[in-house]
């Protein structure tokens, strides 16, 4: 019995508001009339001409102005100060020795990157496999290679010949040898650098890939198992593509770090970009300009990698977001298209 009156009053209230809103509309009709009629006065053509303008944002304008001024100041300080010796930078930027060093840096990055991420993937899968032995091996690898300074690892690989004179592969206790070589012949600066950088990278890459794999919802693996999809396909077709979303930003961090990290191989006198630059300024004493040459090249490589990162991340975002972010080209075309349409309409 208690419910009934409440319902009734609620309904009455509702009908009253309905009626009163109608009454209000009538009452305010004279007040609103000018506004309504001004829209009417525009006519269809007038309404078609209406454009939406962005809101004024005074604070944003001030911030943009201040930032612009700061950028300009920085440019002036850098470009107009003759002590940066930009003419020296320009003369060396495309020099043959610099380009050779640059190619060497790229070669190191690619080789160490492939070794690092390839081995890293294997280590991550080992760590996540049900096998305790595999997981233990993987853990131990990461533990050792993450806890030793990269510099030390590099020097150990390079000086392996001091520790072990020859590398022999054969059957122990017999004279049968399949392979026998002086360690110092095998361990060129390039091999030492790739091993040092690659194995160190693998230890980090394995953790980062493992993190990505763990971020994929367990239901995905379960559904794939329930469908009888074999383990290899489960990992490579179902889990990894989705893990890539979590892996990619950090992986590109690592790769970009690796590009500059290759500079460390100067300790074993491998002539990559940084070592080359050092050689040159050791002779010419133009230290800062030569460092700028190397820096500008690192900036170029990093920029290219960042562009690649954008597109690769976009590729792996399909399915994870409702609409993909536009590519810069698409954005440009959309902007131009919109302006073009405006113009034609104005002409019409």
């Amino acid at each position: 019995m208690e419910g009934a009156p409440v319902t009734l009053t609620a309904r009455q209230a509702a009908s009253r508001t309905l009626r009163s809103s109608g009454a209000d509309a009538d009452a305010s009709a004279p007040d609103r009339a000018p506004a309504a009629s001004s829209l009417d006065a525009l006519g269809d053509e007038g309404i078609a001409r209406l454009r939406i303008a962005p809101a004024h944002r005074p604070v944003r304008r001030i911030v943009v102005a201040v930032l612009g001024a700061l950028v300009l100041l920085a440019l002036v300080l850098i470009v107009l100060n003759p002590r940066w010796e930009w003419n020296v930078v320009a003369s060396w930027f495309l020099a043959r020795s610099i380009i050779r060093g640059l190619l060497e840096t790229l070669k190191l990055t690619v080789l160490a990157g492939v070794l690092g991420f390839g081995l890293g993937l294997v280590l991550a899968l080992m760590r996540l496999s049900g096998s305790r032995l595999a997981a233990g091996l993987s853990w131990t690898f990461s533990w050792i290679f993450r806890s030793t300074p990269l510099l030390v690892q590099m020097l150990i690989w390079f000086n392996l010949g001091y520790l072990y004179d020859r590398i022999v592969i054969g059957i122990p206790m017999t004279d049968l040898t399949l392979f026998d070589e002086r360690t110092s012949t095998l361990m060129t600066p390039l091999i030492a650098a790739v091993l040092g950088l690659g194995l160190h990278q693998a230890a980090y890459a394995s953790e980062l890939i493992r993190g990505g794999i763990l971020s994929v919802d367990a239901g995905q693996v379960e559904a794939a198992s329930a469908l009888g999809i074999p383990a290899r396909h489960r990992h490579l077709r179902i889990v990894l593509p989705q893990a890539m979303r979590a892996i990619l930003p950090t992986a590109f961090n690592e790769v970009i770090g690796l590009v500059k990290g290759t500079a460390i191989v100067y300790v074993i006198a491998h002539a990559e970009l940084f070592f080359t630059v050092q050689l040159i300024y050791g002779r010419t004493q133009q230290v800062l300009p030569m460092l700028m040459v190397a820096t500008l090249w690192y900036i170029v490589i990093t920029s290219l990698l960042s562009i690649a990162q954008y597109y690769i991340e976009r590729h792996f975002a399909k399915g994870a977001v409702r609409t993909l972010p536009p590519t810069p080209l698409q954005r440009l075309r959309a902007n131009l298209g919109a302006k073009g349409r405006d113009r034609t309409e104005v002409h019409a």
Partner: peptide, 18 residues
């Protein structure tokens, strides 16, 4: 192989998102 004879539909669908 045995599982291919048994289909399963989950509460949370678990469609492969990618």
């Amino acid at each position: 192989a045995q599982r291919t004879r048994v289909g399963m539909v989950f509460q949370q669908f678990h469609l492969f998102g990618h």
